[in-house]
Every structure is written in C-alpha cells, then in structure tokens.
Amino acid sequence: MLATGPHAIRVDRLNKYYNAHHALKDVSLTVENGERIVICGPSGSGKSTLIRCISRLEDHQSGDITVLGHRIGHDEVSEARIHREVGMVFQHFNLFPHMTILENCTLAPIRVRRMSRADAEARAMTFLERVHIPEQAHKYPGELSGGQQQRVAIARSLCMMPQIMLFDEPTSALDPEMIAEVLDVMIELASDGLTMICVTHEMGFARKAADRVIFMDQGEIVEEAPPEVFFSAPRHQRTKDFLGQILSH
C-alpha cells in the first residue's frame, strides 16, 4: 500500500510536448483525498493529456506529479505502483473482447493482486452488482450495449480497489439513452467518497457530483471553481464562451 499523503494528487508546473506541440503549459492542480473534480474544455485543450500524464500513459517533459505521496519518475517501479492505485475508464471502454465480462474483471486482481480465483470472482460479482449488470457476467463484451460495456469497464477498474479513479469522457461514445445509466453509476461512486477526476461535458453530472469544476483551454487551466459558482458566475471570457456554447444545445 502507498502511504497516503495530505493530497491525493498534486500536479506542479507540468509541461508536456508532443514533438513541437506544447500540449500542457505549466499546469498546476491539487486534488484532495475524496475530492471529485470535473474537467471540461474545448476539443484539443489538453484534458486527456493531463489525465494520461497522471495515469502514466504519457511521459511529461518538466514539472512534478505526486500521486498519493509518491513523486512520479519515469521508471517502471513507480509506474506499476501508480497503476495499482489509480483506475482509469476510457472513452472507448477498451474491454478485452476475447474474455468474458467476469474474466475482464478478474484478470488484474488475480495477476497483479495475486488473489485466488474464487475471491477475485466474488469481488467481481460485487462490483458488477454495483453497476447493475451481474446477469451479464458470462457474456462477451461484443454481446453488450455500449452503456453496459462502459459500466463493465468501471467495474473492472473498481475490482483493483483503486484509491483514485480517472475518467476520460466516459459517456461521449454513447447514445443518449445510455448516457444516463453510466452517469447514475458514476454519481453513486462519487457519493462513496472515492477520489475522482472526470473529463466530461455532462454539466448535469458536474452540478450533482463535482466538488470543483476545472476549465481548460489551449493547454492551460483557465478557471476552477465549485460548480455553483462555475456555472452561475464564470469569471473569464473564454469560460463564458464555452459555457454559452455547450449549454445552448
């Protein structure tokens, strides 16, 4: 187990380049234990890049990231540690199509946490119940709807008992009628005290579940505020324009 520091995540003057493209510019951000953060912003503003840096899917060029008291280096050891404590849910689910739902959920607990198969399956069933699809356990991902697949992906991450969950636009590949079922699950998680960072444009979710909303544009954090303030009294013009755009739909 990692020693839990005062903050869940601390990002300090983070800079990330894709070749010449400066994707994150001096980004600083602190997330407390149990805090729920929503990140929004226009396409290409660096939201995915930020949470992919936190989850070690991308290397950064300068600045520090500290997760649960551990400063992230570029080595394998810290990567493995981070991945055991930080779960991630992707826009395109990324379930393993050649395994059943149950196998998807038990693979990492068995191989990484060294749990027995019986224990891992029991835990998987608990979380599949929490996302309301225990009856699909023996099907393959291809047999499930998008909303169901995304809920399995959430359960699969939870089976590792992470302390932090990262979501990268978990509902934007879904049909409208499936968005609600995924958001409901996420709201339930939020009320359980899990630390969450969620990139999403679902402003209803931000209002209900977020402690803080962060607005990014062109690789910078432009504004951060509690949802009541963020939606009613945005300070920056760029935020106002963005909110005007997405709320007008």
């Binding site: 070690r56 899917l57 493995a80 991945h83 055991r84 395109h92 990324n94 379930l95 393993f96 990484v112």
Partner: peptide, 19 residues
C-alpha cells in the same frame, strides 16, 4: 487502447502480452 487498459490495471509488460 487494449494495451493501455492493461497498463492502467497494473499488468506488467509480459502479462499484457500473454493475456
């Protein structure tokens, strides 16, 4: 995304390749 999902679940390189 397949490999990335494996990484974020904490699987090592060989585990991701094999499973």
């Amino acid at each position: 995304g397949q490999d990335e999902a494996g990484r974020t679940l904490g699987l090592t390189y060989w585990q991701r390749m094999i499973y």
